[in-house]
């Protein structure tokens, strides 16, 4: 691999890693607070993208308004899912919620097949500006890259601010430790958990829209792979840790690209490398890179 190719692949990896990080932030936030691996995260992502697409194509909204509507509707969807599927199981064993999340994921996918049809749709609803390519010598960068990086960092700061600088955030962190005690302290637990899901789903939709801008193919199963990769990224970073999701996302994206860059013949099996990294990392550092202190109740 030549030096310019290496540099180009670093750019490619930044873009892919940024997308993984963006999806992983929402994933990890919900886990960090509720200790629930929300396998439906990728499917909420997909629904958010469809909402935005239909807002623009069917209702003729300008693209930016369509995006906002998509994100808002995904928030509603998350609220509904929590209320219907997760809340009744809050005191059930954790495995029950996990199975429900998987069921919810299948349900959302199948519902999307029925409602939107199985044929992939194009997400060509955003201005051409984002697809513009900047050329520096031999290197080429899509303007979307900067946009994705910007949004990722903004959302990261936003989530950290929410968690550590607001009263709601304090309540969220309290819920993560002990729900009954938090409730005794006067916090409205139901409301806080609903809010967590709404924010998590809006983050999912935001990342989905960014994903669709890079890979403009919208179909009911589009959330599965990004959701799975983001989950891996979150685990690598230390699930529950928001900065960890960022680091895990970039690490995963960069590795996928560089493995292919160095060994083009193995490109067909690059997912294998992503999961091998996960396994090796978990063997030496079971809690991920950013260890989250977790207290075992005795």
């Amino acid at each position: 691999m030549w030096l310019t190719d290496f540099a180009q692949n670093l750019i490619n990896g930044t873009l892919l890693g940024g997308l993984y990080a963006l999806i992983a932030i929402g994933y990890t936030m919900v886990y960090g607070i509720l200790r629930l691996i929300n396998f439906a995260h990728g499917d909420i992502l997909m629904w958010g993208v469809y909402f935005a697409l239909y807002a623009v194509v069917a209702f003729g909204m300008p693209w930016w308004l369509g995006f906002l509507v998509g994100i808002a509707l995904a928030g509603f969807l998350g609220f509904g899912i929590e209320k219907i599927a997760y809340r009744p199981l809050r005191n059930a064993p954790r495995i029950s919620s996990l199975i429900t999340a998987i069921g919810m994921s299948f349900f959302l996918e199948s519902l999307a097949v029925v409602v939107f049809g199985g044929i992939p749709k194009s997400f060509n609803i955003y201005p051409k500006f984002f697809n513009h390519t900047l050329i520096f010598g031999h290197l080429r960068i899509q303007t979307l890259t900067f946009f994705i990086l910007g949004i990722t960092f903004l959302l990261l700061l936003g989530v950290l601010w929410l968690l550590y600088r607001t009263k709601t955030g304090t309540a969220m962190r309290a819920i993560a430790t002990d729900i009954p005690t938090t409730s005794l302290m006067g916090a409205n637990v139901d409301r806080i958990i609903s809010l967590t899901f709404i924010i998590g789903s809006m983050l999912a939709a935001t990342s989905g829209i960014m994903w669709a801008m890079r890979y403009p193919q919208v179909q009911p199963y589009m959330g599965f792979v990004p959701g799975m990769k983001a989950f891996v990224a979150a685990v690598i970073g230390g699930i529950g840790s928001v900065p960890g999701a960022l680091v895990g996302g970039f690490l995963l994206g960069m590795t996928e690209i560089l493995v292919v860059g160095f060994f083009p013949n193995l490109a067909g099996y690059r997912d294998v490398f992503a999961y091998v990294i996960l396994i090796v990392l978990l063997m030496f550092r079971p809690t991920g890179i950013f260890t989250v202190y977790s207290e075992q109740k005795v």
Partner: peptide, 8 residues
């Protein structure tokens, strides 16, 4: 994503 293969 095919950017790495395409770069090569």
């Amino acid at each position: 994503d095919f950017s790495a293969q395409l770069t090569d």
